[in-house]
Simulated assay, not measured.
Amino acid sequence: MLHIGCHLSSAKGFEHMGKEALSIGANTFQFFTRNPRGGKAKELDEKDIEKFLKLASEHQFGKLVAHAPYTVNPCSKDQKTREFAHMVIEDDLRRMEYLPGNYYNFHPGSHVGQGMDIGIQVIADLLNQLITPEQSTVVLLETMSGKGSEVGSRFEELQAIMEQIQFGDKIGVCLDTCHVHDAGYDISGSLDDVLDQFHQIIGLDKLHAIHINDSQNPLAAHKDRHAKIGEGHLGLEGIWQIVHHPRLRHLPFILETPNELEGYAREIALLRQEQVPPLED
Score class of each variant (00 low, 15 high):
96 M>W: 05
261 L>C: 09
97 E>C: 07
218 P>A: 03
278 P>S: 11
91 D>H: 09
93 L>E: 04
85 A>S: 15
182 D>K: 01
48 D>N: 08
210 I>S: 10
75 C>D: 06
82 R>C: 13
234 L>P: 00
180 V>W: 01
117 D>M: 14
268 I>D: 10
220 A>W: 06
13 G>D: 00
165 I>R: 01
185 Y>E: 02
100 P>H: 07
249 R>W: 09
185 Y>H: 08
25 G>Q: 07
8 L>Y: 13
117 D>W: 01
257 T>H: 05
160 A>C: 02
191 L>S: 03
91 D>N: 14
12 K>A: 09
214 D>M: 10
79 Q>A: 15
94 R>S: 03
121 Q>R: 15
273 Q>V: 11
98 Y>D: 00
113 G>C: 04
197 Q>H: 13
214 D>A: 05
33 T>Q: 04
263 G>C: 09
175 L>W: 02
219 L>C: 08
175 L>R: 03
139 V>G: 02
131 I>P: 02
276 V>W: 10
98 Y>Q: 10
187 I>R: 06
123 I>S: 10
184 G>Y: 06
125 D>F: 00
52 F>R: 02
87 M>Y: 14
124 A>V: 05
200 Q>V: 08
102 N>Y: 05
3 H>R: 14
266 R>S: 12
56 A>Y: 01
164 Q>K: 15
130 L>T: 06
130 L>E: 03
180 V>M: 01
49 I>V: 11
130 L>A: 07
41 A>P: 15
275 Q>E: 15
249 R>M: 13
260 E>G: 13
68 A>E: 15
188 S>R: 12
62 G>A: 14
251 L>R: 08
192 D>L: 06
124 A>D: 06
246 P>T: 11
74 P>M: 06
199 H>L: 04
266 R>G: 01
127 L>N: 11
253 F>M: 13
230 G>P: 01
265 A>L: 01
185 Y>N: 12
221 A>T: 04
186 D>R: 14
200 Q>F: 09
270 L>R: 04
150 E>P: 14
168 G>K: 14
1 M>W: 05
228 K>I: 09
71 T>F: 14
193 D>F: 08
268 I>Q: 00
104 Y>T: 06
24 I>W: 06
266 R>M: 04
217 N>C: 11
166 Q>N: 11
146 G>L: 14
272 R>D: 00
23 S>Q: 07
98 Y>P: 00
141 L>E: 12
148 G>V: 09
51 K>T: 13
166 Q>R: 14
